[in-house]
């Protein structure tokens, strides 16, 4: 029954089961994650993000295949949006991952965002930790495809790959989306299509305007993931980027930032859960909402009241 030794021993069913417990918020999941923690820190985490329809899943499939050729084991976490209305989700990334799905060195898990914004789900970091402890060398994380504000991935991945495709929108969209600051590697996929030169040029021009001329300069690369074209070069670059992070000391710096963000996020979540569970009863909340709707009270003052009550208790 104890999942931790089974995971460390390479049992994929235990991996899958712990992931379910994490998503369900089961108390035993926290304990297992704590026990797995010392066994993490070895994997290279690569994030893949970009607008819908640029071919992220196909690219992930082919990148995984190339990493396997280089004798690396691969874990894949594929995030798709949950419906904000029903909480249900249609997770279809596996459709495009059939090349590597049956390889024993690969473990693929799909997840719904479950009300979380930012392109990842709440449990994504824990899934990565589980796959890391399970012994995967490379963990590919495919985010929700939305292209605007899906920036959580940079706080999770060592290497972030931004996927674009010809004709997906102009350079202004790229600036708005803030992707120019977060990409370590830019890939223009579907490069057999019209307009590829223009997309390449626009990305390169926008990147040249980035103020930071020192350190890692993100390359812009062409791929046709469907046919496996350009994949080796992208994997080369990803490995180069990891080597750069190690040499420059950025890896350690990044790890500290990541640890801080994660710790504070957990603290914030626990505080708000505590406040909402202990600080305000349903009837009190309804009474406050009534007053807000009657325009007797504004939301900021109402929030003060809730917090004030918690302090008094």
């Amino acid at each position: 029954m104890d999942l931790v030794p089974r995971i460390l021993g390479g049992d994929r069913r235990a991996v899958a089961r712990l992931m379910t417990l994490v998503e369900s918020g089961a108390p035993e999941a926290k304990k297992a994650l704590a026990e797995l923690h010392p066994h993490t820190g070895k994997a290279h985490i690569v994030g893949i993000t970009g607008p819908p329809g640029t071919g992220k899943s196909t690219l992930v499939d082919k990148l995984a295949l190339e990493f396997l050729k280089r004798n690396k084991t691969v874990g894949i976490v594929a995030v798709d949006p949950s419906s904000p209305f029903t909480g249900g989700a249609f997770l279809g990334d596996r459709i495009r991952m059939s090349t590597v799905a049956m390889d024993k060195r690969v473990f693929i898990r799909s997840m719904g965002t479950r009300k979380k914004l930012g392109g990842l789900a709440r449990g994504t970091n824990d899934f990565i930790r589980i796959l890391d402890a399970y012994g995967k060398d490379i963990i590919l994380v495919e985010t929700v495809g939305a292209g605007q504000s899906e920036v959580d991935i940079v706080r999770t991945a060592h290497t972030t790959i931004i996927v674009e495709a010809p004709g997906m929108g102009d350079d202004i969209q790229a600036v708005k989306a803030g992707i120019l600051e977060i990409g370590d590697i830019f890939v223009v996929n579907k490069a057999d299509r019209d307009g590829v030169e223009r997309t390449m040029r626009e990305l390169q021009t926008m990147l040249e305007l980035n103020p930071d001329k020192e350190g890692w300069q993100p390359p812009v690369m062409e791929t046709v993931a469907r046919d496996g074209v350009g994949i080796e070069e992208v994997v080369d670059k990803a490995q180069e980027h990891m080597a750069y992070l190690k040499e420059s000391g950025m890896l350690e710096q990044g790890l500290k930032q990541r640890a801080e963000l994660e710790l504070l996020a957990i603290v914030r979540e626990e505080i708000s859960r505590h406040v909402l569970e202990k600080g305000v009863e349903r009837e009190e909340l309804d009474a406050l909402l009534d007053r807000i709707m009657q325009l007797e009270l504004d939301p900021y003052s109402a929030a003060e009241e809730v917090l004030g009550r918690l302090r008094d208790r």
Partner: peptide, 25 residues
């Protein structure tokens, strides 16, 4: 999905081996 479930859709032409492996993972 509309009933609130998470549906993993694997597409066409799946072998029984692929289906069982996906179900486990």
């Amino acid at each position: 999905r509309d009933a609130g479930m998470e549906v993993i859709y694997t597409g066409l032409h799946q072998t029984p081996e692929m289906i069982v492996e996906a179900a486990i993972q």
